[in-house]
C-alpha cells in the first residue's frame, strides 16, 4: 500500500470550539503516515441549517468545496459527522441529477470551477477502517487501552440516512446495530460498552430552539453510558463532543440526575493508544475534565 493521502475538509468546529480535535487529527495522521492536504479554501457546509434557509445555495457552496478536492485528485476526508452528511448528500444529489448538476455548475463556472463528481467523500473513521485497516492499526498500538470501558457514541450524521451513508464507505454499517466505532475501540485495546443510546441523537441541532428536548437527549445519552459502566465516551463527531462535553449542567437538570463523563474525540483515543503525548492531543481543552491521562 502506497502512502495514503487525502484532502482534509476540517469544517468550522475543529478550527474554533474543538481545537483539540484538530490537534489530535494531525497527531494521529502523522503517526499513521497519512498525508492530509487541508482545503483552506473551503466554506462552511451549512451544518443542515443553511439547507433549511436556502437549499440551492448550500448545494453550490458544498459543490465548490468538493471541486477543490477534485482539483487535488484526492478523496475528501471529513472529521465532522454533519460535514460528512451535508457534503455527501450534495454529491449524491448532483451525481443523480444531470439537471441539478448543470445548474450548480453554471454558478461554479462564474468563479472558474466545476463539479465533476470524481472525488469520494468519506469520514476519517471510515478512511481508517477501509483504507488503513484496523489490523494494521492494532499492530501499531503501544499503549493498549485495556483498563478502560469505552462507550462509543456514533452520532446520527455518520450512520443515517443509511442508504446514503453506505454509499460513502466500503465497510457496511447498519444504523440499528453499528459496529465501526466499536471495532476501532477494540483495535485500540479497549473494552466497548453496549448501551441503548450509542446510535441515538445527542440533540445538538435543536439546542437553541428546543433547549429542553435537546438537553434531555444529551442527558439520556450520558446516563446510558454511565449505567453501562463506561469510564468515558468516544465519538467521531465534534458536535456530539461539544454537546456531551460542555452541556452536562443543562443535561443533568433536564433529566434530574447528575450526569458527566469525559468525552474523547476518536482521534484522541487513537492517539492515546499509539502513544502520542497527551499534550499533543489537546486534553486540556475539555470542559468535562479528562482525569485519567
Amino acid at each position: 500500500m502506497g502512502k495514503l493521502k487525502y484532502a482534509l475538509f476540517t469544517g468550522c468546529t475543529a478550527k474554533q470550539s474543538t481545537p483539540e480535535q484538530m490537534m489530535s487529527t494531525m497527531a494521529v495522521a502523522e503517526k499513521l503516515d497519512i498525508e492530509l492536504v487541508e482545503l483552506t479554501e473551503a466554506s462552511c457546509c451549512g451544518a443542515s441549517h443553511l439547507q433549511d434557509y436556502d437549499d440551492f445555495l448550500s448545494l453550490v457552496l458544498n459543490a465548490r468545496n468538493i471541486a477543490y478536492a477534485e482539483k487535488h485528485e484526492l478523496t475528501m476526508v471529513t472529521i465532522c459527522n454533519t460535514c460528512q452528511l451535508n457534503t455527501a448528500m450534495t454529491k449524491h444529489r448532483l451525481d443523480n441529477s444531470a439537471d441539478l448538476k448543470k445548474r450548480v455548475n453554471e454558478k461554479l463556472g462564474e468563479i472558474g470551477l466545476e463539479y465533476k463528481g470524481t472525488s469520494k467523500i468519506t469520514h476519517f473513521l471510515y478512511a481508517i477502517i477501509d483504507d488503513f485497516g484496523l489490523d494494521k492499526l492494532k499492530e501499531m498500538v503501544v499503549t493498549p487501552l485495556s483498563q478502560f470501558n469505552i462507550a462509543p457514541f456514533y452520532g446520527c450524521h455518520n450512520i443515517r440516512p443509511s442508504e446514503l451513508q453506505n454509499e460513502t464507505h466500503d465497510t457496511p454499517e447498519n444504523s440499528y446495530n453499528p459496529t465501526s466505532l466499536d471495532d476501532l475501540i477494540i483495535a485500540c485495546g479497549g473494552m466497548t460498552v453496549d448501551y441503548e443510546q450509542k446510535n441515538k441523537c445527542c440533540g445538538f441541532h435543536a439546542e437553541l430552539q428546543a433547549p429542553k428536548v435537546s438537553a434531555i437527549l444529551t442527558g439520556n445519552a450520558i446516563a446510558g453510558a454511565m449505567d453501562g459502566n463506561a469510564d468515558w465516551i468516544v465519538t467521531p463527531c465534534p458536535l456530539c463532543h461539544l454537546k456531551l462535553d460542555t452541556q452536562t449542567g443543562h443535561a443533568s437538570e433536564a433529566i434530574g440526575r447528575e450526569v458527566s463523563l469525559p468525552v474523547l474525540h476518536m482521534q484522541q483515543m487513537i492517539g492515546l493508544a499509539l502513544g502520542c503525548p497527551p499534550e499533543t492531543l489537546g486534553m486540556k481543552h475539555h470542559v468535562t475534565k479528562v482525569d485519567f491521562v
Binding site: 468550522c12 474554533q16 473551503a42 462552511c44 451549512g46 441549517h49 443553511l50
Partner: peptide, 19 residues
C-alpha cells in the same frame, strides 16, 4: 431563534466563508 439560526449561517458564510 430557529429561523435566525438558519439565516445566520448565510450571514456568517458571506462574511468569513466559515462559520
Amino acid at each position: 431563534i430557529a429561523t435566525r439560526h438558519a439565516v445566520g449561517f448565510e450571514k456568517s458564510i458571506r462574511k468569513n466563508g466559515v462559520l
